[in-house]
Design a binder for these strands. Structure first.
Lengths: 252, 252
DNA sequence: CCATCTTTGTGCACACGTTCACAAAGACAT
DNA sequence: ATGTCTTTGTGAACGTGTGCACAAAGATGG
């Protein structure tokens, strides 16, 4: 999912699978909730239910971190919180910059979940000179001209891009040149980065399109089950019989 | 990624792999850009580069849709746009409701990418009576009491949850009860839904934590390469030697 | 009409991820 | 101390996704 090519040729035995890494934050959240309710221990079954995964997967995930459970009892909540936090690198503080303070950028700046877990908004950056100095979420917006200086002064290694699509790649290039090695991209564009830089993307439009696909499939199936009577929901979709494949609009 | 258990036991040959479905929107975006530049055809190599994937994967992805290319030439841009749009169900219009019009909900409502591709914001819903009637992105916010009526009147099958974590599950339950079968969840919670309902989640905090993990790994490696001299970046991380595993905080 | 050249579509091998199912570990009671 | 009962940790089987490498398809030029 990140960039880089065949990243990690299993260099070290410390190789935790990507899929596991992606679930650790989920476990951590569930464990934090338990911790706040002062629950001392939890079984893989209970925790798996809370995290929305199956218990075998959870146990295998934890087995990559080490043997932190006690058979017949379960896992010590506080201890696990600490181990996972450490594994994810949340025992240290990560300064983050947000570039592009439009609707979305402002929403991100205001998002509480940021600060809660080891992340600190070091700066808000926008290209609009009119925004400069204006405080958003209590932090004054700075102009793009300052980008390199901000990155370097604060030792920022994680950048969030919330600019329009067109501005994303140039901003990305500048962030990387200034020393950022991890980027969270909200702009609907593919970012090109050199090796060693990780990019994760969040794209509303893509998520909706994936949902639409499944939604359409459900509608089609339902129609088929209803006795091949198309429902009103099947608006513009071409008649897709058992192997429907109408050329329809084939140009040229 | 969706919910449901062993969903789709390969019922039909029409079974497009999830991984492929998730990439179709990416291809579609790249193709749309080409279309706007009036590029008539594109090779798998070119399109793959534009979409940020490798060309073999792209060709295999397209092969699940059918044989839409011409050997020696490439793919007809317009035709592919149409085929992918149809496959994703974007030839019809999907009314969407956004529940929770805080910073994020407002940002989503204002997001242009929504309307651009088959999605129409049918309503904005918030629990705060003070918000009722107030227009956001040109659409008046309606109160949660109206939720069921709105869903039914507009035939909404896709809901976006942008509420605080605590409100997400109750809202989800109401959406599902009212007939929504696809949910895009921005709240940091695991949602429980009945079979047949798809949930996709977008979680800023999780993405950042994944980046932090890789960032820490990079820092650790770099330090090791630098001759085992820890850099300033390695703040709170416990000394993780070849198999470092300091109990440190083990409670109880 | 034939030769050449480009680019697709896909069989195959491999890597990664998931799930099952069970032996081993330990708690706890007697 | 011994036995029972719970729950972990993991080997093995399976399923999904990825990438190579190449034959087949068709365009294009002579």
């Amino acid at each position: 999912m990140a960039t880089g090519r065949t990243h990690r040729p299993a260099t070290r035995s410390r190789g935790i699978p990507e899929a596991t890494v992606a679930r650790l934050p989920l476990y951590l959240r569930a464990l934090t909730a338990l911790s706040e309710r002062s629950v001392p221990t939890v079984s893989s079954e209970e925790l798996a239910a809370a995290a929305g995964v199956n218990s075998a997967k959870l146990r295998k995930d934890f087995s990559y971190l080490g043997s932190y459970g006690t058979r017949g009892v379960g896992y010590d909540v506080e201890y696990l919180v600490y181990q996972i936090s450490r594994e994810l690198g949340l025992t240290q503080d990560w300064p983050v910059v947000i570039v592009g303070i439009g609707n979305l950028g402002a929403a991100l700046a205001n998002y509480g979940g940021f600060a809660s877990r080891g992340f600190r908004v070091a700066a808000l950056i926008d290209a609009d000179p009119a925004m400069a100095g204006k405080p958003v979420a209590g932090i004054p917006v700075q102009h793009t001209d300052e980008l390199e200086k901000i990155i370097q002064d604060n030792g920022v290694s994680i950048g969030v891009i919330a600019t329009p699509a067109g501005a994303a790649q140039p901003v990305c290039d500048r962030l990387v040149a200034a020393g950022v090695t991890s980027i969270l991209n909200f702009a609907p564009t593919v970012l090109n980065v050199p090796d060693g830089v990780d990019v994760r993307k969040v794209d509303l439009s893509i998520e909706l399109q994936i949902l639409a696909f499944h939604e359409q499939r459900k509608a089609g199936e339902e129609a088929a089950a209803d006795g091949a009577l198309p429902t009103a929901a099947r608006a513009g979709s071409a008649d897709q019989g058992p192997d429907g494949d109408v050329p329809a609009v084939m140009p040229a």
